[in-house]
Amino acid sequence: MNRRDMVDRVVKELQGDLPAVSRPYLAVAERTGLSEQEVISVLDELREKGMLKRIGAVLRHQKAGYDANAMVVWKVPEEDMDRVGSLMAACPLVSHCYWRETPPGWPYNLFTMVHARSRRELQAAIRELSRRSGIDEYRVIESVRELKKTSVQYR
């Protein structure tokens, strides 16, 4: 098996669930036809290249107590984007912070996802982000219903 095939197989397997067993990478090895050492070496390589962020858990945040969430979009002058983007990214309640290209008629160019344990905490966090950044033109776009939530399929 060449390296590329090994990478493909490991990625395919690891985008699913890792079993909670004493030697989980051995379990992956058995399913992919690699050795445990090869699995670990592929993962090391992917991590070094920045393609793998970590082997870790993704939580259902509502169940973890974070059930007040909103997408908050901010109108930030481009020349101020560095400062504002970094400031908002530093807030632990902000999970995503992206500067996006936006269409005409949509002036909000910085997108954040804010998560909190209550609506009060959420609103306080948003007000605090506005106060500290000095950006007072923003919209809180709450989710009404989750229509789909899955993971990216890489291979």
Binding site: V11, L18, V58, K63
Partner: peptide, 19 residues
């Protein structure tokens, strides 16, 4: 089983994966 963990596995960086 309680549903707190949605998934335990690889967390990839999709732009760096070429997506």
């Amino acid at each position: 089983n309680q549903g707190l963990i949605r998934r335990l596995g690889g967390v990839f960086d999709s732009p760096r994966m070429g997506m």
